[in-house]
């Protein structure tokens, strides 16, 4: 019989057509603007391609996603910001695009250098998000941010006030990295204490 193949093909099309409606009913009201909806639409189980309704919903970024660097500070008890950076300048030396500028801080009373940056600038319009600064920093003071909504009307030179973010923010965006680093830090401190204890005793 002629035309069998056409009928078969039309059957497949009809099946797909019905399936789209069944899928719509199954995901009624939760396909968009919900985390499980985004996860389903991005997974391999989904049928078809779906738009991320960007300003209203955002595609979750992986933990290792990196955009622009930022500086970490520890929050003190009185709300003071204890910056981790010691202005050693390793990040500026490691930066392939040379977009980091650091000014070493000085004690205003004595005029001697202190391990704190007086100024820290990153030219975000030069930075190519390689993450070398974060890799090389021995103090875990500079890390890569997840925030990509940084478009501006002028050249985007980020100064120290813009760059500083609390450690809690870092723990929020990179929980696994944070846990690993904290563990390493504690182990190091314990080893230091164990080494110091017999010497004292």
């Amino acid at each position: 019989m002629n035309g069998k193949g056409i009928l078969k093909g039309m059957g497949v099309t009809l099946q797909r057509f019905v399936d789209t409606y069944l899928d719509d009913i199954r995901w009624w009201g939760k396909r968009y603007y919900t985390p499980e909806g985004i996860a389903h639409r991005s997974s391999t189980n989904t049928k078809g391609i779906f738009t991320i309704q960007y300003p209203e919903e955002k595609l979750p970024v992986p933990e290792e996603f990196r955009y622009k660097p930022f500086l970490l500070y520890e929050e003190g008890e009185k709300g003071e910001k204890n910056i981790r950076c010691t202005s050693c300048g390793i990040c500026a030396k490691a930066c392939p695009t040379q977009c980091i500028w650091i000014v070493r801080g000085t004690d205003p009373a004595t005029g001697r250098p202190v391990p704190q940056p007086a100024g820290f600038w990153i030219d975000a319009d030069i930075c190519m998000s390689c993450g070398f600064c974060a890799e090389f920093c021995p103090f875990d003071a500079i890390k890569m941010d997840h925030n990509y909504e940084v478009a501006s009307y002028t050249r985007n030179l980020m100064d120290i006030d813009e760059l500083m973010k609390p450690v809690s923010y870092y723990a929020g965006i990179r929980p696994l990295n944070y846990a690993r680093e904290e563990e390493a830090r504690k182990a190091k401190e314990a080893a230091k204490a164990a080494k110091a204890a017999p010497a004292a005793g």
Binding site: I52, L59, K68, A124, C127, S129, E149, A151, S152, R155
Partner: peptide, 29 residues
């Protein structure tokens, strides 16, 4: 080193390259 030497730029989108969402954010700007 920057097209703003020759053209009046309205929006700068940093990133290397900016993700599609960053581009859309820039266009919203």
């Amino acid at each position: 080193a920057g097209i703003d030497k020759y053209l009046p730029v309205d929006v700068y989108i940093p990133g290397c390259p900016p993700t599609p969402q960053a581009l859309v954010a820039g266009m919203i700007k």
